[in-house]
């Protein structure tokens, strides 16, 4: 998506980059975004239907069950149970490939902001949020918590990330899946530049433990378009491997390979009931979150 096609009033990631703290970024994004959202969507994450009880004065008429009233001529209101036991684990890929950018924002930065926004959103709903930083191993792990103090702790960890290494998601995902006992929401933020089948296997492992899994694949626009021109010596940011080539000559084959790679993830995620969303670093966070939550509200 280019700037012209983006809805007006949304938050440009390039502008967000000028904000000094993650808290402020998260607050700006989530508050501004929530204020524009419908309530039902807002509650989509953590409110669960519990049953009916008889209407008493002072109850919110919005929860009156008109269908039951029509059938029985009695007034009942729907009772919701707040899911206080829902825990969320945000898995952020901090490997070196995430450092790539063709503009001003790296995939890693985008991922950090995304993680910060989601944490803010969750904690503001009283949900517990934990953070796992990973590349070829688990670099840092913060257990879920739902307090504001925990949020600040979490954001401070995101602000001081360790330097990542090579990507090896599959093995790490299996290890995490084995460690998380209680049913949780797993959010993976990564470029997924690893063996797709192995990564999917890792994610399926979460599903076997009845976790709900959401995958945010962060990519740079240049990684998709490969719109370079000239003869370059391409250097792999993770392994340091070099390869000479004419970018124009390689572009068509590159794009085909990338499309095939993305399609594969999309299909496999769909087949394994894994929510999958792809974000390009140019896409505004609020827009991305809105799109995703809208989609989720309709599907859950």
């Amino acid at each position: 998506m280019n700037a012209q096609q983006r809805p007006s009033g949304l938050l440009d990631p390039r502008v967000m980059g000028k904000f000094s703290g993650l808290y402020l970024v998260a607050k700006t994004v989530v508050e501004g975004f929530i204020s524009g959202l419908h309530k039902s969507l807002y509650r989509g994450f953590s409110i669960e239907f519990a049953g009916h009880r008889e209407y008493t004065a002072g109850d919110d008429l919005r929860y009156l069950d008109w269908k039951v009233f029509g059938r029985t001529d009695r007034t009942y209101v729907r009772v919701f149970r707040e899911e206080t036991n829902v825990k969320t684990h945000i898995l952020l890929d901090i490997s070196r490939s995430m450092e790539y950018t063709s503009g001003s924002i790296t995939k890693k930065q985008y991922g950090i902001w995304l993680a910060a926004c989601l944490s803010y959103l969750m904690i503001s709903q009283k949900d517990a949020v934990g953070l796992i930083l990973l590349d070829s191993d688990i670099r840092r792990q913060i257990k879920p918590g739902s307090t504001t103090v925990h949020l600040h702790h979490l954001l401070s960890q995101l602000e001081n990330l360790p330097l990542g290494k090579t990507t090896s998601l599959a093995a790490v995902l299996h290890r995490i899946a084995l460690n998380i006992k209680r049913r949780s929401l797993i959010i993976l933020i990564s470029d997924l530049f690893d063996e797709p089948d192995k990564v999917i296997n890792g994610l399926v492992h979460f599903r076997h433990h009845h976790h709900e899994v959401i995958v945010f694949q962060i990519l740079d626009a240049a990684e998709l378009d490969f719109s370079f021109s000239g003869h370059f010596q391409f250097v792999d940011m993770e392994s340091g491997e070099k390869m000479d080539g004419d970018s124009l000559a390689l572009s068509a084959g590159y794009r085909q390979a990338v499309q095939s790679f993305l399609r594969h993830y999309q299909r496999q995620c769909s087949a394994n009931n894994i929510s999958y969303a792809r974000a390009v670093t140019e896409t505004p966070f609020d827009y991305f979150l809105y799109q995703y939550l809208n989609l989720r509200a309709r599907t859950v």
Partner: peptide
């Protein structure tokens, strides 16, 4: 040829 750091060579090799 100028060095060009890129996230992965996986797709370039296929290309």
């Amino acid at each position: 040829a100028k060095p060009f750091p890129f996230s992965t060579l996986r797709f370039l090799k296929i290309s």
